[in-house]
């Protein structure tokens, strides 16, 4: 498997969401690699070691939590999928790269809402009176 495919696959394990979009995965991986250059490859290696295990998700979880740098990158990987934004090593924020990536953040779907400033389609006046 390629780097690109493996990053997407490990993102699917971390987020519990399947299938994730490959182009988005590529963009997210590149943004993270810019700030965590050494650790992205190590996270992919950890994933490759975990896929052979009976419960790959649990194995990956254990592996990253045994290594603070990997745990941190796993956190930022989850953050970028949920919100298109993550915290850089210097604790500044890396903003969503495009409006559409912001809107595609996983958080909105999980909480049964829609991205703030982007009403649901179909929607229209009063959709909010109904159970989602």
């Amino acid at each position: 498997m390629t780097h690109a495919a493996d990053f997407r696959a490990l993102s699917e394990l971390l987020t519990g969401e399947q299938p994730l979009d490959q182009a988005t995965a590529d963009a997210h991986r590149e943004r993270l690699a810019r700030h965590f250059p050494a650790d992205v490859d190590r996270l992919i290696d950890a994933y490759r070691a975990a896929v052979g295990q009976p419960d790959p998700g649990a194995a990956l979880f254990t592996a990253v939590n045994a290594d603070p740098a990997l745990a941190r990158l796993a956190r930022e990987t989850l953050a970028i999928w949920y919100t298109a934004q993550f915290t850089r090593p210097d604790n500044t924020q890396d903003a969503p790269d495009t409006p559409s990536r912001y809107r595609a953040g996983l958080v909105w779907k999980v909480i049964s809402a829609h991205p703030l400033s982007a009403a649901p389609v179909p929607g229209g006046y009063g959709y909010w009176t109904q159970h989602p």
Binding site: T15, G57, A74, I111
Partner: peptide, 20 residues
């Protein structure tokens, strides 16, 4: 602890439970 607490669908469920 600088560790992940939840991931995967468990994280999704916890988030939905709380934020909604």
């Amino acid at each position: 602890a600088k560790k992940l607490k939840h991931y995967g669908t468990e994280l999704q469920d916890a988030l939905a439970e709380r934020v909604t």
